[in-house]
Every structure is written in structure tokens, then in C-alpha cells.
Measured scan of single mutants.
Amino acid sequence: MTEYKLVVVGAGGVGKSALTIQLIQNHFVDEYDPTIEDSYRKQVVIDGETCLLDILDTAGQEEYSAMRDQYMRTGEGFLCVFAINNTKSFEDIHHYREQIKRVKDSEDVPMVLVGNKCDLPSRTVDTKQAQDLARSYGIPFIETSAKTRQGVDDAFYTLVREIRKHKEKMSKDGKKKKKKSKTKCVIM
């Protein structure tokens, strides 16, 4: 069974824990209790493949930012979460993405942009803004509501699919490099 290491990042209060708990335990946590770091595991079937999701729910508070490099190193894919009623959390996505790329030393890291709290009427981040940002990053965008469960499975499952595509691409690139290195030079 394939294991996928997913990391949920975003500013404090955007609903990272609520999304994760909704996926794992099928219930909505409405009281806000700032996370330092929590880890969850769940076995699911995605596109006919049974897999184990190892999900790291991270601290959004700035005082825990020193811990970010460590979990970013171990993560295979990242859910970059903002709240649709919090423009600052949307603007912060850029910083999370840049930090992930720096730590992973790669421009090509599996990510999904997630606009959470889409059940709320007080939207300050337009869907088109988020779609445009995701398009500019070359990553999928999904709106979710941890409260109603809308888009929750889709967000995590899409990230797994992005990781699969990335692994497939990397193995193809690896095979191309191996083929090239088999060419021999004969000096007579």
C-alpha cells in the first residue's frame, strides 16, 4: 500500500485542523484551538488504489514558523489553505509557496490551493482571484467548507493525484537520464 505524506499549511484560523478532522473523523470542530502540530493517518481508496494518507496539520501562528522547514522537508505534497473571508490569509499563500519551493529546492512541488469556509456569506476573496492565482502557479484550486464537508475529500484526493503525477514524471525523467548515460565512448 502506497503511503502519501501530505502537509496542510496556511495562516492561523483558516480551518486547516477543521478540514483535516472532517476528512479523518467526519465531524466539524467549530471551536478554535490553535494547533502546534498534529499528525493523522487514514486509509482510503483513490482511483481504485488503496493508500495510506499521513497528514500533518501544522501551526499557522507566526511564533511556530521555525518548525516549518522541518515538516516541509518531509512532506510530499501540500494543501495551501486560505479562508475566503480573510484576504490576508490569501496573500500569505505566496509566502508559504515560496518557502516550500526553497526548502524542497524545487520549482515543481505537488500543491493544491484550497479556499476554505465557502459556506460563509462574508467572502472577501473572489473565486476568480483564487483561480487566477492557482493557474499562475500551475496547481489545482478547490473551494471547501469544513463545516458542510463540501470539497473536503476532493481537496485531499486531488493532492494525492498531483503527487502521483509528480512521481510518474520524475521516474520518466530518471529513465531518460539513465538511457543517456548508457551511451559509451570508444577510443581507438
Rank of each mutant, 00 (worst) to 15 (best):
N116Q: 13
I187C: 15
L56F: 07
Y71Q: 15
M72V: 15
E63F: 02
A18K: 06
K172T: 14
T183Y: 03
V9P: 10
N86W: 02
K182R: 09
F156K: 01
L120K: 12
R41I: 04
F82H: 10
E62G: 05
Y40W: 08
V125N: 10
I24V: 13
M188T: 12
E3N: 11
E162Q: 11
N26K: 02
A66I: 15
S65C: 07
Q131V: 10
Y40K: 01
V152W: 04
V112M: 11
D54C: 00
L23M: 06
G77V: 12
V160I: 11
F28I: 01
R164Y: 07
Y157P: 05
D126M: 09
F78M: 14
Y137W: 08
F156E: 08
E3I: 02
L19K: 10
D154F: 08
Y71D: 15
C80M: 13
G77A: 14
Y4C: 06
V29G: 02
R73S: 08
E63C: 02
K179M: 09
R149Y: 13
T50A: 14
D153L: 06
E31T: 07
R123K: 11
V152F: 04
I46T: 04
H27F: 11
N116I: 07
F28P: 00
V9Y: 07
K175V: 08
K165Y: 10
C80F: 14
K178Y: 10
Y137P: 15
E62H: 08
Y4D: 04
Y71L: 15
T2V: 07
S65A: 06
I139C: 14
Q131S: 11
M72A: 15
I93R: 02
T20V: 06
H166Y: 08
G75I: 14
M72C: 14
C51M: 05
M67R: 00
K180R: 11
M67G: 04
G15T: 03
I46L: 11
L52T: 05
G15P: 02
T74F: 15
R123T: 12
S65V: 08
E143A: 02
N26L: 13
D105V: 04
Q22L: 02
Y157I: 09
P34G: 00
Q22D: 12
A66L: 13
M111H: 01
G10L: 05
V7S: 11
I21Q: 08
V14I: 10
V109P: 06
A134T: 07
A59M: 15
C118Y: 09
V112C: 06
V29S: 07
D38C: 01
A155T: 11
Q22A: 06
I139W: 06
L79C: 10
E76Y: 14
Q43L: 01
G48M: 08
T74I: 15
T87N: 08
Y137D: 13
E76S: 06
K42A: 08
G151A: 11
I46H: 04
K177E: 12
E98Y: 08
T58S: 03
L52I: 09
C118G: 10
Y71S: 09
V8Q: 13
D54G: 01
D57N: 00
D47H: 07
P110V: 03
V114W: 01
Y64I: 14
T20H: 00
C118L: 13
D69W: 01
F141N: 05
L133Q: 09
D57K: 00
Y71A: 15
F78E: 13
G174K: 15
A11Q: 06
I21M: 09
T158D: 05
E63L: 02
L133F: 11
N26Q: 11
G115L: 11
A11V: 06
G12D: 06
D57G: 00
N86T: 02
Y71F: 10
F28Y: 05
S136F: 09
F28C: 01
L52R: 07
V103Q: 09
Y64M: 15
I21P: 00
E76M: 06
V45N: 10
D69L: 02
K169G: 09
T20I: 11
M111I: 09
K182Y: 02
V160L: 06
H95N: 13
R123Q: 13
A134P: 03
M111V: 10
L53P: 03
Y137L: 13
G10Q: 02
K128A: 10
I24H: 05
V44D: 02
A59Y: 15
